[in-house]
């Protein structure tokens, strides 16, 4: 049904300035900063769901990655599992989960966890496996047990790569959490989905902008953590290429 007036994005007239002006007005409207549908509330929901997804994924993928990397076997299986996880679209999973888990976060969370696992798993395995063989051998020569080699030699050396995995995963999750809104979930995706449904371009653009800001903040946060760790004595400084990130193939600095 057509609505008289706006919707340049959907109508395709492409009046960018009009959209930008109305989006700025949207942000300046105090009504958009209070209540359940306000920016603080929606951002909070978005952060909670994203953090939960990454934490649960880490609880699964970190131990699995450490074991596989340390044993230096089963890597193919881990990579295959990660590959399947990457190949299946989160949107499809989300809709498939609704009959089992119900509306909202209960379906969105498992879908996001499955999205979050592959980068953490792959980077943990690769990080541990690629630790300099001589260093590991030196540890063994000093009489360290396998567990000590893993926790005191391999993990510190692999940490930059593991953190990059977490970073990639977290940024993907923050961007994808928007999908929760399609199944009556909250989060910043609410603005995008509702904006399309109500033909309100300002709402769509505001939502997209907030998600982008949150994704950049997440990326910066993990980069900061990485810097803190690199500054610490006892941590190996490795110039390792990182997993592909949505912000281009940066190199750990």
């Amino acid at each position: 049904m057509a609505r008289p007036g706006g919707h340049p994005l959907v109508a395709g007239t492409g009046d960018v300035m009009a959209v930008l002006t109305s989006t700025i007005a949207w942000f300046l409207d105090p009504a958009h900063w209070t209540g359940v549908d306000g920016v603080p509330s929606r951002t909070g929901e978005h952060v909670i769901l994203s953090v939960l997804a990454v934490v649960i994924a880490s609880a699964i993928a970190l131990p699995a990655g450490l074991v596989v990397g340390h044993a230096d076997r089963g890597e193919r299986i881990a990579t295959a599992v990660a590959g399947i996880g990457r190949a299946v679209p989160s949107y499809a999973l989300l809709i498939l989960f609704v009959p089992f888990f119900g509306l909202g976060f209960s379906s969105a969370l498992p879908a996001l966890v499955l999205l979050a696992i592959p980068p953490i798993l792959v980077n943990t395995v690769t990080g541990i496996r690629d630790v300099d063989a001589d260093t590991v051998e030196a540890g063994r020569g000093m009489g360290m047990t396998g567990r000590e080699v893993l926790m005191d030699v391999e993990v510190p050396a692999a940490l930059p790569v593991i953190i990059v995995g977490l970073r990639t995963s977290a940024v993907q999750v923050v961007a994808t959490t928007t999908l929760a809104a399609l199944v009556a979930g909250g989060g910043l995706g609410r603005y995008i989905v509702d904006g399309f449904a109500r033909q309100q371009d300002d709402r769509i653009v505001a939502g997209a902008f907030l998600v982008a800001v949150l994704a950049i903040v997440t990326e910066r946060f993990f980069t900061w953590i990485q810097r803190q760790l690199e500054g610490r004595p006892g941590t190996l400084r490795l110039d390792v290429p990182i997993a592909p990130s949505p912000f281009g193939g940066r190199v750990a600095d």
Partner: peptide, 20 residues
């Protein structure tokens, strides 16, 4: 109010499961 879809599968599942 639970925002789902316009008479689509998500609304139907929500009813079947008792989410709405």
């Amino acid at each position: 109010f639970k925002p789902t879809d316009a008479g689509g599968p998500i609304t139907i599942e929500a009813l079947k499961r008792g989410d709405a």
